[in-house]
Design a protein around this nucleic acid. Structure first.
Length: 528
RNA sequence: GCCUCCGUAGCUCAGUUGGUUAGAGCAGCUGACUCUUAAUCAGCGGGUCGUAGGUUCGAGUCCUACCGGGGGUACCA
């Protein structure tokens, strides 16, 4: 492999060689167990437990490990900050505290910012008052051959505000080299820790209710359960086309038929569509199905779940999102879709013929064409005039049948279904319904979808899922089902305005020259 | 996909109506310095200006195409 190294990279390679010559292994095999993280040490000194002024105080002896960040050498002594997962702590290094020659030949000349090092020593407070470790032992744990961007933080003494110089803001750098972004930015790591807490909390919440976490196929011979274009792939041994799932709905409901009273799955779904601030082609969805319940009950569950999650992630139900503060404290308003439209636009569309709805849409300034059915029109009106205004969590209920091929017909309202979406900050984060369990009605709805697909609606699923219908024919209990977009919820709870900031490795176009080797030949024959 | 903005050193940025040899801070290198903290002081190196064409006596700057990214928009959660 030949790559052009920058000046600074060449220097680090030279340091690597020099370290080996000096008998210092740059990638040692031995473990370096730590006793403390930076934040723990700072916290211990914060509560004055180790205040040197205090009676009977013993200095803390610690072993820490992390990345060497800034190095400030002053002749025979030096300071640097060591960054570990928890934060940063300053290390004080003196020539005479370390083995003969180490300070001058290794520490000063051959160690670079970004190197991973282990330090042991006593904790003390510098003259300037910063809690630091006086290094007595110092080990290189891994050499860094590529310089991380150098950012410097200054805390204003008077205002207490932190100012960062030379902060890397280039989103391309941050997403492509997420490892560097994370290494540099504890606040980015914190977002992903919060996301993990969110998912864990959801699991605990659902497990506590006795629902069973399951795994269903990501590779599916037929796709369904949502309106979206799928990715396609191929299985060699079976010589069979497969789809990556767009939803797990139809498999989870098969499990309800099978006698599970509550099942859920937290899974990646894949949709072959455009990318945006709100869309990544693979994303994480929670789906939950509970037998013998309906959508009204499910609204209660969702309120409880979100309140619990907000508390777990944030410690409060009041969450800042952009310029708003969103309250996840239950209950949330429940507004029928058509009522919400009437309230916002003045048009009462309940049980109105398609042409009257089209006229209303036109009157509101929407572009209307003949292929749009009444369901689509209502969806457009809602999406344009109502949804963006719904900042606080709001249940919008009772969607038209045409938009909801898997939802049960409303018990009293003709042409509507028992379905709700939870809208928050102007976006859908949850979609749920009383599941359609009438196999004959389901077959008719599938056939209608196939008809739409043949007419050119490329989101409509173009095949009847006979196996799913067979399952329903055995009898599925009345069931409440729900899907919740984990990424979007994570965006809200971590106050990030792009989905890329809550996905560790969002999809990007391949980097030019990222692959400088000839592509590895892909074997297409089966077997191993 | 379409519209639009952006791409200059490892990082953050400047670069005039097109005009000598493309600048600064940080980082790096050499030296000084045993409590510094954007350490300081003295000196030094570092660029295919995203890529390829074009216009021009002359292009970082103007034009075209392409590559990559941001924002918006369409499909969608």
């Amino acid at each position: 492999m030949s790559r052009d190294l920058t000046e600074q990279e060449q220097l680090r390679h030279a340091h690597l060689d020099a370290l080996r010559e000096a008998g210092v292994e740059p990638y040692p095999a031995e473990a370096w167990p730590v006793t403390h993280h930076a934040a723990e040490i700072l916290a211990a000194y914060d509560d004055a437990q180790h205040d040197p002024e205090a009676e009977g105080s013993e200095p803390l002896r610690v072993r820490v490990a992390g990345r060497m960040m800034t190095k400030r050498v002053m002749g025979k002594a030096a300071f640097f900050h060591l960054a570990d997962e928890s934060g940063r702590i300053q290390i004080y290094v003196r020539r005479d505290d370390l083995p003969e020659g180490f300070y001058n030949t290794v520490f000063k000349k051959l160690l670079d910012p970004g190197d991973l090092v282990g330090v042991k020593g006593e904790v003390f407070r510098t003259k300037m008052g910063e809690v630091s470790i006086r290094a007595e032992g110092f080990t290189l744990l891994a050499k860094s051959l590529k310089p991380l961007p150098v950012e410097k933080e200054v805390v204003d003494e008077e205002t207490g505000e932190t100012q960062t110089f030379n902060e890397v803001t280039d989103p391309e750098f941050r997403y492509r080299q997420r490892y560097a972004d994370l290494a540099l930015h504890p606040e980015v790591r914190e977002v992903f820790k919060q996301r993990a807490r969110l998912v864990t909390t959801i699991r605990q919440f659902l497990d506590a209710k006795g629902y069973v976490e399951v795994e269903t196929p990501a590779l599916q011979p037929l796709y369904g359960g949502a309106a979206a274009r799928p990715f396609t792939t191929h299985h060699n041994a079976l010589d069979m086309g497969l789809f990556l799932r767009i939803a797990d709905e139809l498999y989870l409901k098969r499990l309800i038929v099978g006698g599970f009273d509550g099942v859920y799955e937290i899974a990646k779904d894949f949709r072959n569509e455009g990318l945006s601030r709100f869309h990544n082609p693979e994303f994480t969805m929670l789906e939950l199905y509970v037998a013998y319940q309906d959508y009204t009950w499910m609204m209660g569950l969702v309120e409880n779940l979100l309140e619990t999650v907000a508390m777990a992630v944030h410690g409060t139900t009041e969450v800042p999102v952009g310029e708003h503060t969103i309250s996840f404290a239950k209950p949330y308003p429940r507004v029928p879709l058509l009522d919400a439209i009437q309230e916002r636009t003045g048009h009462d569309l309940y049980q109105k013929p398609r042409d009257e709805i089209a006229a209303a849409a036109k009157a509101l300034g929407l572009e209307v064409d003949d292929t749009m059915g009444s369901g689509k029109l209502i969806d457009e009106i809602f999406g344009t005039f109502v949804e963006p205004h719904l900042i606080q969590p709001t249940f919008i209920t009772d969607y038209p049948v045409e938009l909801s091929p898997l939802a049960k017909r409303h018990r009293t309202r003709e042409g509507l279904t028992e379905r709700f979406e939870l809208i928050c900050n102007g976006k859908e984060i949850c979609n749920a319904f009383s599941e359609l369990n009438d196999p004959l009605d389901q077959r008719a709805r599938f056939e209608e979808q196939v008809r739409l697909a043949r007419q050119g609606d490329d989101e409509a699923v173009n095949t009847v899922d006979e196996d799913y219908l067979r399952a329903l024919e055995y009898g599925m209990p009345p069931t409440a089902g729900m899907g919740l977009g984990i990424d979007r919820l994570a965006m809200l709870l971590t106050n990030q305005d792009s989905i890329r900031d809550v996905i560790l490795f969002p999809l990007l176009r391949p980097e030019e020259n990222a692959v400088d080797a000839t592509p590895v030949e892909v074997r297409t024959d089966a077997g191993s």
